[in-house]
């Protein structure tokens, strides 16, 4: 099991419980609004926070959150809201790339297991089983041990660490679709293997990947920032959330906001991804 498989499972159960709800709930609306904010901050950070994230102003160092500096200022007087907003792009890019790597590998492994017959399935499954004996962060640490710390390695590490989860979900989905009654019905109608694959199996397997990807980005952001926090990912001058939090740790006794707000953004991103993933799940299936 992986966090992702549990998340995906919970989404499915929640959907089964609320069969059709067209209305957008308050939580979904909030999640959507924050997602829009994140996207805006990622593509045009100066739109959200016009200041310079690196502008030093020693006179206004360590200001608590106030009307001018919503999230306060850090040890060099840099505005934390500006820094957090400008860090969005970096964090999201790492999260998205890591998810892409994990999902890509997962698709390859899962499809191999699901489509290429028993022997391949058995082998891939054993391989995945072994990977699950490495808890996620340990697998990531192993990758970093081999390739050395840094943003790229951290991204790849998170991608690799999440791949087994994706692979297993995709395999299960493929197998359940492949043996579904509507696939048999198509066989009885005289459709060929290819036609069935293209018309029924692939679309029904791929649709849930949107949900998985959404859930996955949230997780990947958390993991990547964990690596940065541990000093193995992005290094402190960069305005990446994990790195900012790590740098702010020194001052938590006197200026809690340095570490608090970057972390809050990580949490909100993860919650948003979960809520949106579940909302997407509900709507995709009941379209």
């Amino acid at each position: 099991m992986s966090d992702l498989e549990i998340q995906a499972d919970l989404g499915r159960q929640a959907r089964a419980r609320s069969p059709r709800r067209r209305r957008i709930s308050v939580a979904e609306a909030l999640a959507g609004a924050f997602a829009l904010f994140l996207i805006a901050a990622a593509f045009a950070p100066s739109l959200v926070a016009p200041g310079d994230p690196l502008a030093i102003d020693p006179l206004s160092a360590f200001q608590a959150p106030n009307l001018v500096h919503w999230f306060g200022t850090d040890e060099s007087g840099r505005d934390i809201f500006t820094r957090v907003s400008h860090g969005t792009g970096g964090s999201l890019v790492i999260g998205t790339l890591a998810t892409g790597i994990g999902l890509g590998l997962g698709i390859v492994l899962g499809t191999m297991a699901g489509m290429l017959g028993r022997i391949v399935d058995f082998t891939v499954n054993r391989f995945l089983e072994v990977l699950f004996a490495f808890p996620g962060l340990l697998l990531a640490l192993l990758v970093i041990l081999v390739f050395g710390p840094g943003i790229q390695t951290a991204t790849v590490a998170v991608g690799l660490a999440t791949a087994p989860g994706y692979a297993r979900i995709i395999r299960a989905q493929l197998i359940s679709v492949r043996s579904a009654a509507f696939v048999e019905a198509a066989t009885v109608l005289g459709r060929g293997r290819w036609q069935i694959l293209v018309r029924h199996i692939l679309p029904n397997t791929l649709a849930p990947l949107f949900v998985l990807g959404t859930l996955g980005i949230g997780q990947a952001v958390v993991w990547a920032s964990a690596l940065s926090y541990l000093g193995l990912g992005a290094a402190p001058p960069a305005a990446e959330w994990g790195a900012m939090l790590s740098a702010g740790r020194t001052y938590i006794t006197s200026a809690w906001w340095l570490a608090f707000f970057p972390g809050l953004f990580i949490v909100l991103t993860a919650v948003t991804a979960t809520s949106l993933g579940r909302a997407l799940e509900r709507r995709l299936r009941h379209a």
């Binding site: 920032s225 964990a226 926090y229 994990g242 790590s246 972390g263 949490v267 993860a270 979960t274």
Partner: peptide, 15 residues
Amino acid sequence: EIVAAALPHFWLATA
């Protein structure tokens, strides 16, 4: 529960 599940250990510890 959703928020708790999304809390990263490093931030929770700090908080």
